[in-house]
Design a protein around this nucleic acid. Structure first.
Lengths: 189, 189
DNA sequence: GCGTTCATGTAAAAAGTTACATGATTGG
DNA sequence: CCAATCATGTAACTTTTTACATGAACGC
C-alpha cells in the first residue's frame, strides 16, 4: 500500500488537492513510485473514507483540498518506522538479459550497448535536476536530494555494468560452435 | 507482459511443466521478476490458448509438459530485439527516504543504517550464489551470471549509498532548530 | 472568445497477491 | 503406511494501466 503512504507523506507537508499532489508526484516521486492520475484521485477518496485525511477546503472547479488527520500522521509514522520495505524489484531490462542467448552475439551486445546509452542519458537528466533541487530547504527537498544521489549512483552503475557486460559478451568466441567460429543462431527464426 | 516472456524464455531452453518452471523461476528469475505459482499456471494456460506454447506431453499426477511453438519463439525474439524495456522502478525503500523528515534525526539515520545492513546481507547471499552458478555453460547460466554481477554491484551500491546517507544525516545539526540544537519533532505524534 | 490550465472522476482491463482446495506418487 | 514431494488449479482481492468523459476558470 505504498501509494497510500506516498500521499500521506506529501499531505504531511501541508494540504493539497489531487491535482497538486499529481504534479508533486510527477516531479519528485515518479522515479521511485510512479502513479497515475486515476490512482491518485481514487486513493484520496479511499483515504478520506478511512478517516486518514479529510477535505479541509473546497475551491473553484470542484477543487478539494485534502489535509492529513492525526490517524493519517500516525499511520505514516508507523509505515516509516515499523514496516520493513519490501525490496521487491522488477526489471524487464534484466529479465531480457537471461534470454540473450536466443540472439546472436552482435544482437546481444547491441542490446547491452543500448542499455548503457540509455543509462547515460538518464544519468544526465538526473544530473540536470541537481541544480533545480539544490535550492529547497523543506523536508521533501532535503531528503529528496538523498534519493537523487541514489539515482545518480544507480544510473552510473547501470551504465558501467552494461558497458562491462557488452565487453564480456564480445570477448566470448561464439561459445557453442568452437570448430567454425560461426554464430550458432542467426536472425531468421 | 513480462511474465509471459519470462515463461517463453524458459521454455525456449526446453520443455517443462508449470511445476518445473516455478522452481527455475524461484532460483533464477525471482530476483528480477518474481512470480507466484498461481500466476505461472494461469499464464501457461493463456499462452497455450494463444498458441504460443503447446502441451507436448502429459505425465503422472496430471503433469503437463509445455513446449514452445514457433510463434512463441518469434514473440520472444520480437520482445528481446524490438520492445524497449520499460525502466519502471518502484522502491518503497526510496519512497520512505522522501519522508524521513517526519522522524527525528536518530530515527532517520537508523532507518538508513538498517538499509545498509540489509544490502550487505543481500550482497553476501548473492555472493554465495556465484560458486553455484559458475558451473553451468547453458545460456541461462552464462547470461544469468551477467545478471548476477548486476545484483552484486547493485547491492554494493545500495550499502554504500545508505552508509553515505546515514553519515550525511548525522552531520546535519538539527537543521530546523538552529537556536537550541534540539530536534524539532519527537517520537510521540 | 478561445486556448490553456485546472480539476475531478468513472470504467474496464491487465497484472499481481494471498489463500484455499485437491489429490496422485514416491521413497523409506 | 506415512510424510514429503509433485502437480495443478480456482477465487477473491488489491494494485496498476489505459482510456474515456466532463466541465469550470483564467489570462490574453
Amino acid at each position: 500500500m505504498s501509494l497510500r503512504h506516498a500521499l500521506l507523506g506529501l499531505l504531511a507537508q501541508g494540504p493539497a488537492s489531487g491535482y497538486d499532489l499529481m504534479k508533486i508526484f510527477d516531479i519528485s516521486l515518479a522515479n521511485v513510485w510512479p502513479a497515475t492520475q486515476s490512482q491518485v484521485y481514487g486513493e484520496l477518496s479511499r483515504l478520506a473514507d478511512a478517516g486518514l485525511v479529510k477535505v479541509a477546503a473546497e475551491g473553484p472547479r470542484g477543487r478539494k483540498e485534502y489535509a492529513i488527520d492525526d490517524t493519517g500522521l500516525a499511520e505514516l509514522r508507523h509505515w516509516l518506522t515499523e514496516v520493513e520495505p519490501t525490496h521487491v524489484h522488477r526489471s524487464d531490462m534484466l529479465l531480457r538479459v537471461f534470454f540473450l542467448g536466443r540472439l546472436d552475439r552482435e544482437q546481444a551486445a547491441g542490446y547491452l550497448r543500448r542499455q548503457a546509452e540509455f543509462a547515460a542519458g538518464r544519468h544526465e537528466s538526473l544530473a540536470g535536476l541537481v541544480d533545480i533541487v539544490s535550492e529547497g530547504e523543506d523536508d521533501l527537498s532535503v531528503y529528496g536530494r538523498l534519493a537523487l544521489e541514489w539515482g545518480l549512483r544507480f544510473t552510473n552503475l547501470h551504465r558501467e555494468w552494461a558497458e562491462w557486460a557488452t565487453a564480456e559478451i564480445e570477448k566470448w568466441p561464439s561459445p557453442r560452435d568452437p570448430l567454425t567460429g560461426e554464430a550458432p543462431r542467426e536472425t531468421g527464426g
